[in-house]
Design a protein around this nucleic acid. Structure first.
Lengths: 337, 337
DNA sequence: CTGAAAGCGCTAACAC
DNA sequence: GTGTTAGCGCTTTCAG
């Protein structure tokens, strides 16, 4: 089996019909005697025929695959958010029997060819990402998760109402006594980072609190030298009584840093919160509060919207909000159970 | 921009040459005046030409994409092992500028078409996985990670020497006093599960210890009803002084179960170890010992071997061993720092 | 109801 | 040096 590729011509010959008849017989189209159809099916099964997706795609313009572009994820696939988002996309892809293409993600080298997919999901678009721009201009349907940075051409977006959740988080920390917050968040390249930052600033303004924030390049991740890096960031507001960080790695680094200095974590020391939920936060000695962006659901929603659009022409709304939730834990003053 | 797809014919016309000349000019082949070549390049850039990967692939047989088949991962993408493995593959794919195709993974429904990829990585092959069998028979080069179950047609394999690591782990636990071990591991469908199981049995035999083990279907995961399920498993050997589990979810469940019964974790209670490392194990109140399969390195090794083979014909050895390591932690008696 | 022919966009022989 | 031609495997009119 499988010695040489068996083509539709082989099947047609074996069944004693022409290629076009064979094609229609297998796809269930055309009108023909049941006997003919059965004979073709039989021959195809006998020979182990599988249509060549390339040829079919070239002819029909459909490949039954969708593309996923994820700049941050390509480097490290680091955060649980990204992995869960991808998991959600995979789940739907499997259900609808689409292949899922991870588009190779060089931020500044153009793609060597057009991607051979029916539609594209862009997760967390980053400004100046050349390939994201290429994809947006490619003419293929695109759905993006989270937020486009200012100045980037858009597409339908699906995201969590994270602004509102952040406000809830800040209210909670405030109630637990926080007055000198420090926020570490991605820089202006990330639409989501901008969203978080401006919500933070607005909230602070409403309470006459000075907003202090530090930018990081999101892509760099936090996996190396995290402790040292964190120390530097904390130095921006040494008297902070609340530290908000963007990834679980940063959270681990802050917690480690505080612990090594003997500072208690929580309302009676320094509160810590993470902008993005990750399983590890719950299992720390002092569990850390976070915003759960429900990445799996978000990824699934993107894939569903895209495939529905491809298959039934369902239009994709410009903006869809998916529900997120707050994970309040001991690090922001909730008492231990 | 990007209103209608611009094709090679458009470029050729704009540059005033024929299609073939345009093709050769862009690909750097053929002999022609530098002026012509430059003119074609200019025209292509002007029009924003990107070759159609489908058409090129159909003609040349190369798509510059590789496929990844992962049965367990499709459902949940659950364990960190799977995610890190995929991360390793992605890293290499990006480096070599290959797209990475997640092949849709229905265990018992045949693929609708041949996958349009140059080569395939199968992670953790599972017996009776119809699509894995299809891929193995497809004629495309295949590399598998870990181990083929008995009776499954093979391909080159890259894996960790996990057998030796498990022996080291068992030795360590034995030294810390374990005499009544219980192992929970995947059933015979998983080649890796079989490997672990038989190493365990052999080790026990050498020490005249009764090997007790429980099978689970790996694919089911451990995410729901974990506590209840774990209780049932533990009941198989209620007096166990060492429990070995296959995933971090199972480890969390065991730890939770023991804690709720007030049993200390470690040499002075019940030792716990996980066959597969995950970050969360390190951050538990009592950190849990595990075997680090270095999934990222493993995934990268698979991708590198496959792409090297595709590009230079480098043969892939039948078996390649990658180094793993033991993560000894407090749960098996190492004293706290 | 079935077969012949065209063509999706590209590349590789082979003439000119 | 450059253009013409054929064909990768498939689907889709359109005659018969």
């Amino acid at each position: 089996m499988g010695s040489r590729r068996v083509t539709l011509a082989d099947v047609a010959e074996a069944a004693g019909v022409s290629r076009s008849t064979a094609s229609e017989a297998l796809s269930g189209r055309g009108r023909m005697s049941e006997a003919t159809r059965a004979a073709v099916r039989e021959a195809a099964a006998q020979l182990g025929y599988r249509p060549n997706a390339l040829a079919r795609g070239l002819r029909t313009g459909r490949t039954f695959s969708i593309g996923l572009h994820q700049l941050a994820g390509a480097d490290a696939f680091a955060t649980q958010y990204v992995r869960d988002f991808v998991g959600g996309v995979m789940l739907v892809a499997k259900e609808r029997d689409y292949d899922l293409m991870f588009l190779s993600a060089h931020p500044d080298k153009p793609r060597p060819s057009q991607p051979q997919v029916d539609g594209i999901i862009i997760a967390d678009p980053i400004a100046d990402d050349l390939r994201a721009l290429e994809l947006l201009a490619s003419g293929a349907p695109v759905v993006a998760a989270e937020q486009f940075p200012a100045g980037m051409p858009g597409s339908p977006v699906i995201r969590i109402d994270s602004t509102r959740l952040l406000e809830g988080l800040l209210d909670h920390c405030f109630a637990a006594g926080a007055r000198r917050p420090l926020m570490v968040a991605p820089d202006a390249n990330s639409g989501w980072g901008v969203l978080m930052r401006s919500a933070y600033v607005a909230w602070c303004a409403a309470r006459a609190i000075e907003p202090v924030h530090v930018s990081i390049a999101f892509i760099d991740g936090f996996e190396e030298d995290e402790a040292e890096m964190m120390e530097q960031l904390l130095a921006v507001r040494p008297d902070a009584d609340l530290v908000i960080v963007p990834t679980e790695f940063a959270a681990l680094a802050v917690v480690g840093s505080l612990r090594s200095r003997g500072v208690p974590i929580g309302a009676d020391g320094v509160q810590v919160a993470c902008l993005v939920e990750a399983g590890v936060l719950e299992h720390l000695a002092t569990p850390v509060t976070s915003i759960d962006l429900h990445p799996r659901i978000l990824g699934a929603a993107c894939a569903t919207a895209l495939i529905d659009h491809l298959e039934s022409g369902t239009p994709i709304p410009d903006l869809t909000l998916v529900e997120g939730s707050l994970r309040l834990r001991e690090s922001t003053g909730v008492p231990a159970r």
